[in-house]
Design a binder for these strands. Structure first.
Length: 589
RNA sequence: GCGGGUGUAGUUCAAUGGUAGAACGCGGGCCUCCCAUGCCUGAGGCGAGGGUUCGAUUCCCUUCACCCGCUCCA
């Protein structure tokens, strides 16, 4: 059971989003469309800010990450190589009795006697149900058990006193059509594809099927060689991308948290395999303990790089207003890991509806590039001059040991991928031989974040209510969004103290003009000054600047100064107009 | 996909088988020398489709959307 107060908070956030123009239902005048949401004026600014902060911190502030912007529709083979065609399109069957859902191919085959019924009639009302049904019993069980279950089935379809009709027994071997738990017949297997399908070209036929990408990551992998060849990057380095992805989710839920069209911010950081690091540096550094491991070093293996990115990501969230305490780190247990993953850390945020994933940081080994190498037939190995030199200088036994470890890892991958034993052995040897020539397939650390759920997290985290009591004892509740100034959609509100004094208005317009070239500014003169502050509080604007009579020189020493009012504590400061930009810029960037 | 609930103004809610009101918000006007002031004024709504009915926002059916639970979440 969920706490009603939790639900209340989500409802308040949802209606605030609508009311103030953060998020609207998509296509609303036509009744909306399930799983799709639009960002309104404030939401668009907020989202843009978040993406830009991510982009800047990933690419411009680092020398070892470059950007990419790839298409949404790509060659369909990519989704075979990535595993999405298989794992996203499993046939599913539902239990006709309990409605439990199964992956049709994973049902344990059952044998025994199946009792079929053509329908049933109500002994009292005479009402008929024609739907056929069947129950599978293990050999030796009396047919009574089957009738009992069939009774339940027809009772659920509106019959009281059930008279089963057309009972027929049949021997069944290794069938996947029945629920292993209760023997009930399942629905026909139905394809269950989570990828949006479309056709390239004007004629829709099976030869030109394509998919909207279900994640942005694969585009990075398939452009890895192009980026490497054109960017003058050297291992290790990363490729960052922000973009739309699409999943035909069974149940979009929790406002924008799980949408069918969403945006991802993904980094694929390519690193040297541990064997290569060891060949170059003698040893692979071990994590010294929890926390940020500091600036990257050449002797880092996948573990330290993984830890580094987990900490970098947490630091990023702190910088945009989600402090460490609002997050939870979840290290996936070995049995939860995808088969190619060495480790995965989920960064969870405490949403009102539960603690849910914001970002996953996965150590994905060389799985992705290897898959694309096999499926495309194009080598994805990099050439590393340093390795070739270092390899030649290694002691023979050391070389042997590293060769063997690399070989074994490749062999394990190839075998799991279904490559026949002999071929796997040959390929693994060739891969390991490549080390001597300075060649290897990079491993990957992947921090992958959902933009929309981050926006939702920022909104719910920023949401606050302030209850005030006026002189007459009347209480009022005011909503305030305490966004970090870096993400706030509007940075500054600029107001003339009174709108019926042309000199105040003129000066305020002047200040507005001064600031708007540097940041998002909102000019407002409607209503009382208090109302205007409140409006900006609700939009999450961190600063408001008011032009009053002192600005105009009523108190000579205050001429050309303004008050700046801070959202979170209502504090006011007096600043010269000339110093405003310099004061605000470092706060909002 | 299944089960339950809810759809009335931008938001939160009311009423009604004879076409709907409030509060807040929003626009305009006057006032206002710093935290939702006051007065005047204006705009704006029955999710969509069908049926029953002389007449439907109200009753029925379908559909869509949202919320909750199950399922799903590579």
């Amino acid at each position: 059971m969920s706490d009603p107060k939790v639900n209340e908070l989500m409802e308040k956030v949802v209606s605030l989003c609508k009311r103030r123009g953060f998020i609207f239902p998509s296509s609303e005048i036509y009744g909306g469309i399930n799983g799709f949401w639009d960002y309104g004026p404030l939401g668009a600014e907020l989202k843009r800010n978040v993406k830009e902060l991510w982009w800047h911190s990933m690419t411009r502030h680092r020398e070892d990450v470059v950007g990419l912007e790839a298409t949404i529709i790509m060659h369909p083979q990519i989704w075979r190589a990535s595993g999405h065609v298989d794992t996203f399109s499993d046939p599913m069957s539902d239990c006709l009795l309990t409605r439990k859902r199964f992956r049709s191919d994973q049902i344990e085959p059952q044998s025994g006697t199946a009792y079929h019924y053509t329908g049933a009639q109500d002994a009292v009302s005479g009402k008929c149900v024609d739907e056929p049904y069947a129950v599978l019993l293990p050999a030796g069980k009396p047919p009574e058990s089957a009738r009992k279950i069939a009774n339940q089935f027809y009772q659920a379809r509106g019959l009281g006193q059930v008279e089963l009709q057309g009972e027929r027994a049949e021997k069944v071997e290794n069938s996947q059509r029945f629920n292993p738990d209760n023997g009930s017949l399942l629905t026909e297997p139905r394809p269950f594809n989570l990828m949006f399908k479309t056709y390239v070209g004007p004629v829709p036929d099976e030869d030109n099927v394509a998919y909207l990408r279900p994640e942005t990551a694969q585009a990075i992998f398939v452009q890895f060689k192009n980026v490497l060849d054109s960017s003058r990057q050297k291992m290790p380095f990363g490729i960052a991308q922000i973009g739309k992805a699409f999943r035909n989710e069974v149940t979009p839920r929790n406002f924008t948290f799980r949408s069918r069209e969403f945006e991802q911010m993904e980094l694929e950081f390519f690193i040297k395999p541990d064997e290569v690091v060891e060949a170059l540096c003698g040893t692979v550094a071990k994590p010294a303990g929890p926390g940020h491991p500091g600036e990257p070093r050449p002797d880092w293996g996948w573990q330290l790089w993984h830890q580094y990115w987990v900490e970098e990501r947490i630091r990023f969230y702190g910088e945009i207003g989600l402090p460490r305490e609002s997050l939870e780190e979840y290290w996936q247990k070995p049995e939860e890991l995808a088969h190619y993953a060495r480790a995965t850390v989920d960064l969870l945020f405490k949403f009102p509806f539960g603690t849910q994933e914001l970002e996953g940081i996965a150590a994905r080994s060389d799985f992705d590039l290897s898959q694309h190498e096999r499926f495309s037939g194009k080598s994805q190995a990099v050439f590393d001059e340093e390795l070739r030199t270092a390899w030649a200088k290694l002691a023979e036994e050391r070389r042997q040991a590293l060769w063997q470890r690399y070989h074994d890892a490749r062999h394990q991958y190839l075998t799991k991928a279904g490559v026949p034993a002999q071929q796997a052995e040959q390929d693994a040897r060739e891969d390991a031989d490549g080390l001597a020539r300075g060649q290897y397939i990079p491993h990957v650390i992947e921090p992958s974040a959902g933009v929309d759920r981050l926006i939702l997290g920022l909104l719910t985290h920023a949401y606050g209510e302030v209850t005030t009591t006026d002189a007459k004892g009347k209480t009022a509740t005011e909503v305030v969004l305490r966004f970090h100034p870096k993400v706030a959609p509007i940075k500054v509100g600029v107001f003339p103290l009174l709108k019926n004094k042309p000199e105040l208005v003129a000066k305020a317009r002047e200040v507005f003009g001064l600031l708007r070239s540097e940041m998002a500014v909102f000019y407002d003169e409607a209503g009382s000054i208090g109302r205007r502050y409140a409006r900006q509080d609700e939009a999450g604007t961190p600063f408001c600047v008011t032009i009053d009579f002192d600005t105009l020189g009523e108190t000579p020493e205050l001429k050309d100064t303004v008050t700046i009012r801070y959202r979170d504590d209502g504090r006011q400061e007096r600043l010269p107009i000339a110093g405003l930009k310099a004061h605000l810029l470092p706060l909002v960037r």
